[in-house]
Design a protein around this nucleic acid. Sequence first.
DNA 1: TAGGCTCTTGGAATCAGTTCCACTGGAATC
DNA 2: GATTCCAGTGGAACTGATTCCAAGAGCCTA
Lengths: 349, 349
Amino acid sequence: MAVKKPSIHDIAKAAGVGVGTVSRVLNERPNVAEATRVKVESVMEQLGYRPTFAARHIRTGRSQLFGFLTDQVTTTPFAHDLIKGAQARARQADRMLMVIDADGDDRVREQAVANLIERGVEGIVYAAMFHHEVHVPKALHEVPTVLVDCFTLKRDFASVVPDEVRGGREATERLLEEGHRRIAMVTNDALSTGYPAAMGRLEGYKEALAEAGVPFDEALVREGSGNADSGYRWAHDLLDADDPPTAYFFGTDRMAMGAYFAFTEVGLTVPGDVSVVGFDDQHYIADALRPALTTMALPHAAMGRWAIDHLLTAPWGEDRPPPQRRLPCPIVERGSVGRVPASDAGEEP
Amino acid sequence: MAVKKPSIHDIAKAAGVGVGTVSRVLNERPNVAEATRVKVESVMEQLGYRPTFAARHIRTGRSQLFGFLTDQVTTTPFAHDLIKGAQARARQADRMLMVIDADGDDRVREQAVANLIERGVEGIVYAAMFHHEVHVPKALHEVPTVLVDCFTLKRDFASVVPDEVRGGREATERLLEEGHRRIAMVTNDALSTGYPAAMGRLEGYKEALAEAGVPFDEALVREGSGNADSGYRWAHDLLDADDPPTAYFFGTDRMAMGAYFAFTEVGLTVPGDVSVVGFDDQHYIADALRPALTTMALPHAAMGRWAIDHLLTAPWGEDRPPPQRRLPCPIVERGSVGRVPASDAGEEP
DNA sequence: TAGGCTCTTGGAATCAGTTCCACTGGAATC
DNA sequence: GATTCCAGTGGAACTGATTCCAAGAGCCTA
C-alpha cells in the first residue's frame, strides 16, 4: 500500500504509450484513438492515478483559484452567505476558493494577500461584513480584485455593495402602500459614523415620504445603535408620544426584535395595531419572531456571486474606472406589515 | 509594466549568482554570505519578485493546505465559527484552508473531495452543521480526515463533536442550583430522529435530576422541533398546567426566544418568575433577548481548532481506532436564571 | 608546502505535468 | 504508382522551484 503516488510517466509506461498521449487523455483532447483512450483510462483506474494540480498550474500558469478575504472581526452571520454565493459561481466555472479570515491587524492582512498571490490566485474578493469605507493592503493592486460590501475612497477597485437608499425607500413605500402616514424610522447606527448603511436607509426613507407627499417629521426619527436593546428603548419612547406611529421601519432586524417585546408589553399586536419592517434579513431572527418579520434582505449571496463573476469575465487593467455596483435589497414579506388601523387612517385620499 | 513575472532564474541572473543561492536566500538558510544575501534580496525587491508556491509544492510534496468541506445545505450561522476556529489554528502552523460548501448531492461532494486531493491537501475537515451520523465520500479514506459535529457509524474517522449529555446535565444543574425543582425540558428535535443533539441533551437533563434526587416527571418534558414557534407553543402548554414549572431548559435558543414571548404575554418576567436556559449560544439571539439568555455554547470554534490540530499532529494511518472526541459545551451566563420564587421553593432542603 | 577544514557557491537533476514538433502509416487524390 | 493529407503518437523541452553534489576560496595545522 505504501507505493508512492503514480505520475503520468508511470501511467505512460504501464500503458505502453508516451506521456503526451496520457496528457491528451487526461485533458480529453479529441485527437486520441478510442482504443488508446480506453487502455490509458483503465491503467489509470487500476493504479489509482490522481493528477497533481500543482504541476498543471505551474506549466499552464492557471491556478483556477480565487482568494476570498474577509476583513475585520467577523462575528456576523453574514460571512457564510457571502462565501456561499461566491463559491456557487466559482464552481460553475470550475474554480476553487481559498478563504482567509483576516481579522486582526494590517500586517496579518498584508501577509494574507501575499500568501494568496504566491499561491497564484487569479483574483481576490475582499469582503467587509458591513458596508463601509476600507483601507486595503497595497498588494491587492497586483491582482484582479473586487471589494464586497465596502469601497475605497479613491474608487480604485471594482466594488459591489447593497443599495441602501433604494432599500430604505422600498421599505418605506411598502408601509405607505398600506395607508400608513405616521411611519417611524430608527437608524441602524449613529449618523455621525457616516456609514452608508445608516445614512442611506434614512435617505431612502425620506425619498419615499417625499414622493408620497408625506411631510418629513423629525419627531419620528431616532438614531439607534443596531442592537435589540436599542430597538426596545426607542420603541417605548415612540409609543409614549401623543400621537404614536402606526408603522415602524427599523434599520436592523435585531432592533425590530427588541421592539416586538415593547409592543407585547403594552399589549399591541403586529401587524394588527402596528406594522413593522426590518432590515438585513437575518432570517434566524426574522423567521423566529411572531409574526415573522417583513424585512429588506441584504444581497450577500448575490454580491458574492457578482464578485466572482466580475473576476471571471471582466478584463483586468482596462476598464477604467472600475465599476461600483449597487445591488438591490429585495423585500422579504413575512407578515409584519398590515393595513393602517381605521382610526388612524386620517386624511388618506 | 507587462513584463512577465520574474522567476528564480531571472533573479539569479540579475544578481549574478546561481539559482541555488537564490533558493537559499528565499528559505533563509544560514549558509549564505551576508553580502550575497543583501544583494539577492535587493534584486528581488527591485524586480518585485514573488515565489510561486505551486513550484515549491511540486518539488517538496508539501502543499501547506487543508481542505474544509461542509456537508448539506448550511443555512446555519454556525459554519463561520467553525471555519474561524480551524483557520486560526491553521495559520499558526502556516497552513491555508480551502473551503468548499458542498451542499448538494453526493456527486458534488465526491467531486469536491477529488478536487481537494488533486490540489494536494494534507488533510480534510468534513464538517456537518448539526450533530448527526453521516455518510462520507469514499475518497476521504485516501487522505487524513477529521469529522466535525458528525460521525460515521463505523467510527472509521477521527471525529470531534459537542458533549451533548454533559451540556444537558450542566444546564439542568445550573437550574437545580438555584433551588428549582419543577424544571421543564423541551427537546430540540423529535426523539424519533435519534439525533444525538436531541437524545443527549435530554439524557443529561435526566442525569442531573437523578443526581440531585429529583424524580423525573414525564409531564415536564415536551418534544420540540427547534424553532421559535415550537418554543412558544410548548411554553404556553406548560404554563397551562396546574402546577407550572419554575424553570425551563430549551434545546435551542430559538425555542427559548419563542418562550420569552409566551412569558411576556402572560405577564411573567424572566428571571424573577421563571428561569430559562437555552442551548446553542446563537449570540445574535441570546444577546438580543431581554434579559439576555443564559445558554450552553456549542464549541464550534474549539471543534474547528481541534480538527486542524489533530491533522497537524496525529500520525495518520497508525492510531487505530481513530479518536472520537467530545468537547464540552460551556455555559454562557447572561441573566435568564434566577433563584426559585419563595412560594415555589417547596420541600427544598 | 601539502593536507585538511569549513564556508560559500554554481548548476545539474528532479518534481509532475503541458506543449510542441517531428514522425509514423494508411487513406484519399491525381 | 507516386503524392498528399492527416489522425495518432512519442518524446524532448519547458514551467519554477528545491536538493544535492562537486568544487573553489580561505584559513589553520603539521
